[in-house]
């Protein structure tokens, strides 16, 4: 009786999270897959994907999504790494900085987008500050549809502000897992700060870098709310197209095709990260 309980207990304990994931992730995912490969009249078809690829906004959305990913993810990683190393050096008052850095974590992405809209818009904080300071006489249209560079910069700033904290938290947790002795041994055996970071800290931080990169890349593919708030339809992105096709064009099939494309991209990126940054078998401590 007891052996039996012990055998089933782990499964019983896993059941709630399996149920949760199944209900909220697996079922919608399967539904999206089905929607994407079904023609409007019923029956299997590649028609939805063909229409998606042929859409006027598709190439822009594709380019913008990759552009944002390439600009935002490395920037966030480097920023978060610097901030994490700074906090981990335990200077006086490092706890205060951690709290400051972590504040954006509590703000939803749409709210963050609107907040930054208030900064960058024609009569926003940035323009009024510059005008009051006498730097400019006329407000600059940062977010104008023909100012792609301005829109891109605003989005990169807003996204970095909003989502660097999650990378930071993951990296700080990772740094704290590295025994102090490794830092001290590196110091003692002649490494300066930079070489210590390159030769000892970063390699030991690989598992955390991997998690952070996977999470950030997935979210970068899904970038939507901040873009929508700052640029509206002036800057189409893949996740935004899925929303538009679903909510505005009322075509759930093509919306689902976009979602499946994003899923595919996410899986490819994750596999690459796992392969490139994974620990070799021989390095894993028993």
């Amino acid at each position: 009786m007891r052996a039996r309980t012990e055998r089933f207990l782990p499964f019983a304990l896993l059941l709630p999270s399996i149920g949760f994931l199944g209900l909220l992730i697996v079922i919608p995912m399967v539904q999206a897959l089905l929607l994407a490969v079904m023609a409007e009249g019923g029956g299997l078809s590649a028609e939805n994907f063909q229409r998606m690829f042929a859409d006027v906004n598709f190439s822009d959305a594709w380019r913008n999504t990759l552009l944002l990913l390439i600009l935002i993810v490395p920037l966030q990683l480097v920023l978060a790494l610097c901030m994490a190393l700074l906090i981990n050096s335990r200077f006086r008052g490092h706890g205060f900085f951690l709290y400051i850095y972590a504040i954006p974590l509590a703000i939803s992405d749409l709210a963050a987008g609107i907040l930054w809209l208030a900064v960058f818009t024609e009569r926003g904080y940035l323009n009024s500050t510059l005008q009051n300071a006498g730097v400019i006489t006329q407000p600059i249209l940062f977010l104008s549809f023909d100012n792609l560079g301005g829109i891109l910069t605003a989005i990169v700033i807003a996204e970095s502000w909003r989502a660097t904290a999650i990378v930071l938290i993951i990296l700080i947790a990772g740094l704290q897992l590295i025994p102090r002795d490794f830092f001290e041994a590196a110091d003692l055996f002649g490494a300066n700060r930079l070489r210590r970071t390159v030769h000892v800290v970063l390699p030991l931080l690989r598992p955390s870098l991997q998690s952070a990169l996977i999470i950030r890349t997935i979210f970068a593919f899904q970038t939507f709310a901040v873009v929508f708030a700052l640029a509206g339809r002036n800057m189409p992105v893949l996740a935004g197209e899925a929303y538009t096709w679903y909510a505005t064009n009322r075509n759930e099939h093509i919306a689902a095709a976009y979602a499946v494309l994003l899923l595919g991209l996410t899986i490819v990126a994750t596999v690459v990260y796992l392969r490139v940054l994974g620990l070799r078998e021989a390095e894993v401590q028993r």
Partner: peptide, 10 residues
């Protein structure tokens, strides 16, 4: 020589 050895695992 450290008590924990601090031999780098990577």
């Amino acid at each position: 020589v450290f008590q924990s050895y601090a031999v780098f695992p990577h």
